[in-house]
Amino acid sequence: MELNEIIRPENRVYKKPELLNDTHMHYCPGCSHGVVHKLVAQVIEEMGMQEKAIGVSPVGCAVFAYNYIDVDWLQAAHGRAPAMATAAKRLMPDKLVFTYQGDGDLAAIGTAETIHACNRAENITIIFINNAIYGMTGGQMAPTTLLGQKTATCPYGRRVDLNGYPLAIAPLLAQLDGTCYVTRQSVHTVANVRKTKAAIRKAFENSMKGLGTSVVEVVSTCNTGWKLIPEKANEWMVENMFAKYPLGDLKNKEE
């Protein structure tokens, strides 16, 4: 069969979601942020919520998320996205409100906002990109940085005696009565990308049903910060991150 017989509109089985606009995303080649943006756009589109979705973008590499996904957005000060999402959802309960935050934003400067929004059972979704590093500012150590992991501010590797332990925040959030769904996913293989999409869908539906706060952690790569090519960064993530941040549901209240 000739290519021009295959490449016809009626045979198309995958295309860029329309909500992901044509603006070039500033993310580094191979960055997990791009995959998760695509999934967020797909899920909102498939739910028919394009007119009702409000995202809250963080400070971090995802600060420009509002330029890429064509829904309404708020831009929060560093770490304050769950507080802004709280306000938006309480004022407009019929909206689909979600935050999109990195680990520096969510688990360092914004720890208090994160915990209290979850504990208040705010009907929002928190999408949490955990790449174990401060990506935007040049790859400094974050609370999530693994022991032994080298970063700009721990060039010889993170040490317990000097830097303390890596923080797994999802299990803390799962303990809180206000969360209905806490899950940890990744986007390094097709199967994992599909699972992350299903998790985002479930979280968004929970928030519209008023079940409480849903948290979707995506264990991610920052290949530039880690100084690896994208496919090696995926391998490094599998070999090192999953032991501290194992994938799967931590809490699913419906079950």
Partner: peptide
């Protein structure tokens, strides 16, 4: 290697920049 493509969409799912459209025909 276009002849080998089975239209499974694996490439498109993992692409961080949503660059790939996939077409599939079952003969």
């Amino acid at each position: 290697n276009p002849e080998a493509c089975i239209g499974c969409q694996s490439c498109a799912w993992v692409c961080p920049d949503a660059c790939i459209e996939v077409y599939r025909v079952v003969e």
